[in-house]
């Protein structure tokens, strides 16, 4: 077999990858600012407003600070793995963006450019696989730190993510039964024609949302880094930009999870009550991207809003919620969905 290579096609995809990765980075950067601003507003404060107008340059200042901080590698740590950990966390955080359809398509330079890096027919499974790998960055980093608090954080992260992955997967299976496809692009197209999947799967969406919070290690499920019991959890020993990578990976994870949620349950780049096919291709494409990012912004706000409202779970409560509540609910949801499909199709 010879692989026929279309050079321009590869170039197009490479440019798309660069754009999407840098957009993810920028969005994650500004999510840190949003986090601080929203936290401040919820607590009747003003938040950072010194660097630039409304504090818009604050993320740059934070990044610069992290770059210039002294880098400390503990003496008895495992040096290679210690450096590998944050890199893995960042890598797995960014990898998911490959299968998300960021918009329908654009016509530039006489070429029709699809705004999705890879429309593979197992899109959801890919997302699921990458999410399940996300824990490695945390485990490797925590173990190589040679610190008991870090190790505790890593173990918590591992057991938490494995437990919630189960409910996440089963809630997704119910969705798959409704859509009948694994490709994210096709799901969006289906939702453009019919109703959004949230209409068919309200319970499934709720379960997915809760599990996503747990997978992103966000409050109320931020036990891996519970600062008042574990100091900093898995990143206790990290400093400088390596710490920055861990913190950043969390925000990228949030961004990508929001994108996945918007795509799976809220129509992706679909604009409600508007028939995109009547618009010119480029206008529809750009509007679709804007619509998707508005949905993502809503979910990011939800993430932050919940963080500054709900306190952390106790560890046994966390495990109890995952195994005794979410998993049975997910199974029930799957069962009900199957029954409904059987009933209505006949």
């Amino acid at each position: 077999m010879f692989l026929s290579i279309d050079l321009i096609y590869i170039l197009e995809k490479l440019i798309l990858i660069v754009i999407i990765v840098s957009i993810s980075m920028v969005v994650a950067m500004y999510t840190t600012l949003a986090e601080r601003k929203v936290a401040a507003f919820i607590q009747d404060r003003r938040g950072p407003n010194r660097a630039g107008p409304f504090g818009l340059l604050q993320p740059l200042a934070d990044g610069l600070k992290l770059f210039f901080k002294e880098e400390i590698i503990p003496m008895f740590s495992n040096k290679f793995l210690f450096v590998l950990g944050p890199g893995l966390a960042m890598l797995t955080a960014l990898m998911t963006s490959a299968v998300i359809p960021w918009g329908s398509k654009l016509e530039l330079f006489g070429r029709e450019i699809s705004l999705q890096i890879a429309d593979i027919n197992i899109g959801i499974l890919y997302v699921f696989g990458v999410v399940s790998l996300g824990v490695y960055g945390i485990i490797v980093g925590s173990w190589s730190s040679n610190n008991k608090y870090s190790l505790m954080g890593g173990l918590r992260a591992a057991s938490q993510i494995i437990s919630y992955e189960l409910a996440l997967g089963i809630s997704l299976i119910a969705l798959l039964m409704v859509t009948g496809t694994l490709s994210l692009k096709e799901m969006v197209l289906q939702q453009q024609e019919g109703y959004w999947n949230i209409v068919y799967q309200p319970l499934g969406f709720f379960l997915f949302l809760v599990c996503t919070f747990a997978e992103c290690n966000r409050t109320p499920f931020d036990l891996p880094e519970a600062e008042n019991e574990l100091i900093g959890g898995y990143h206790t020993e990290y400093s400088s930009m390596k710490l920055g990578f861990y913190l950043f990976a969390e925000y990228i994870n949030m961004f990508i999870s929001s994108a996945v949620m918007a795509t799976l349950f809220f129509g992706g780049y679909d604009i409600p009550f508007l028939d995109e096919s009547t618009l010119p291709v480029n206008v529809a494409g750009v509007l679709g991207i804007v619509a998707l990012f508005l949905k993502i912004a809503f979910f990011l706000f939800l993430f932050i809003w919940v963080r500054w409202t709900i306190p952390r779970f106790r560890y046994d409560q966390l495990m109890g919620l995952g195994w005794k509540v979410l998993l049975p609910l997910a199974l029930l949801n799957m069962f009900l969905t199957g029954a409904a499909i059987l009933f209505f199709d006949k």
Partner: peptide, 20 residues
């Protein structure tokens, strides 16, 4: 949870007492 979220949302839109 919903009650708590509504409380924080109320504070989100409240006038801030801090002055620059």
């Amino acid at each position: 949870i919903i009650g708590g979220l509504s409380i924080t949302l109320k504070h989100f839109f409240r006038k801030k007492p801090t002055i620059n």
